[in-house]
Nucleic acid binder design. Structure first.
Lengths: 228, 228
DNA sequence: TTGAAAATAGCACGATCGTTCGTTAACTTA
DNA sequence: TAAGTTAACGAACGATCGTGCTATTTTCAA
């Protein structure tokens, strides 16, 4: 049972490629099989249903997201450096080579607005975790004095996320060359916003461990290690 | 030739409904015909091709956007009131009853990231105009002292737009009840950001006409009057 | 009211959709 | 190497896709 895993991985990779460009709706078993030089039925057997295939693609992307965007950021010193790394990782992810058509999670998210089902449920839980991760990193930064006390971490997560969407739109759709710069500018002013600029910063405690380890472990457990 | 226009309008309405929920990709002539009690071929004859139907749906939504979001905002006094109205109108549009699945333009935009063609071209031009409209309204506000001199109107448009996307995500996907409040908060802090808070405001010149009438007329000409 | 024009229906087409089935080829392991 | 397992294939299924035709009905103007 080695060959099986290999082709399954190959299928997922190709499927992610298509889903990135065409969206989950544009992913058909026929074209996917042709792309891989497989027969429809041979490919189909690996998943048992189209929905299962879509779910597998989404899960794979989601796991990869945790491994590539979230986990490395949490090795950064807590507070502002971690937030900045999180943001930069996200930008990189969004225009990563492995997603020729842009982040498939974001695409799926907008595709599944109004289509209830297990796939939407899964995506919803992942997105909630993602926002939770942002908010939690922000809260630490607030505690450390890197961000203004007055900051609501949920609001921060909302705006953080919004900038990411704006970037995706500006970069992928408008093909705006300054997209990244615009996103960075917006993010920097988000960090500064309502901040206690005059007040002296708290002493650097960047390396103290994050006290809310549970949530992070949740993430690890839920998503598992990166597939590659 | 009255009946023709009527059914065509009815088709467009039903098509918009579907496209809003399922996306342009999920809109098929068969299901659309069934929904309207028409035959496939009868419906088809009105447009001549699927692409033409999609284009018509997009154009209709776009015209409606101008009529419902942009035009009323430009009857508001120039400067900050106009910006605020523009934003509020956009939020209202995004959760309007006529789009049970959310703004079809936004959906199409994310669907057509990587699919070149006349439809993408059209959407691109419309989005450019939209951003231009925001930027232009912001520039006036800067001139009037309602916004900080240091503000780059393009950057403003980027962030304005980003908040809208964030709202759409938070409202439509997460079903977050506070979405609107989050969006408003983000927008207010965008208006205040880097502002010359200390400096006295310029005297109110809200009713002076906008000197860059051309762009607005472009909008009117390009999009025509509202279909209803 | 009649005749031209426009709107709609009916039917069929080739393609593709997701899926099932039985069979064969390839691999793993004992 | 033999046996047993798994992966892949090919053909076919009913359904639906977008798109042509040719009739037939409905609408509108004279």
């Amino acid at each position: 049972m080695i060959k099986g895993k290999q082709t399954k991985a190959a299928i997922l990779e190709a499927a992610t490629d298509i889903a990135s460009k065409e969206g989950l709706g544009g992913l058909s078993i026929g074209t996917l099989a042709k792309k891989l030089g497989l027969s429809k039925s041979g490919l189909f057997a690996h998943f048992g249903s189209k929905d299962a295939l879509l779910m597998a693609v989404t899960e794979a992307a989601s796991q990869r997201f945790v491994a590539v965007v979230i986990r490395p950021a949490f090795q950064e010193p807590a507070g502002r450096p971690r937030l900045e790394r999180l943001f930069e990782n996200w930008l990189n992810w969004s225009e990563s080579r492995e997603f020729p058509g842009g982040c498939p999670i974001m695409a799926a998210t907008l595709e599944l607005d109004d289509r209830p089902g297990p796939l939407r449920d899964y995506l919803l839980s992942q997105q909630r975790k993602w926002l939770g991760t942002i908010g939690q990193a922000a809260e630490i930064a607030i505690d450390m004095g890197h961000l203004a006390d007055s900051f609501d971490s949920e609001q921060f997560a909302f705006e953080f996320n919004a900038i990411g969407f704006g970037y995706h739109f500006s970069n992928r759709f408008l093909r705006e060359p300054h997209a990244r710069h615009q996103a960075r500018t917006a993010f920097q002013s988000l960090l500064v916003k309502r901040s206690n600029a005059g007040k002296p910063q708290a002493p650097d405690q960047s390396n103290i461990p994050c006290e809310k380890e549970t949530e992070r472990d949740d993430h690890r457990n839920a998503c598992g290690p990166a597939p590659q």
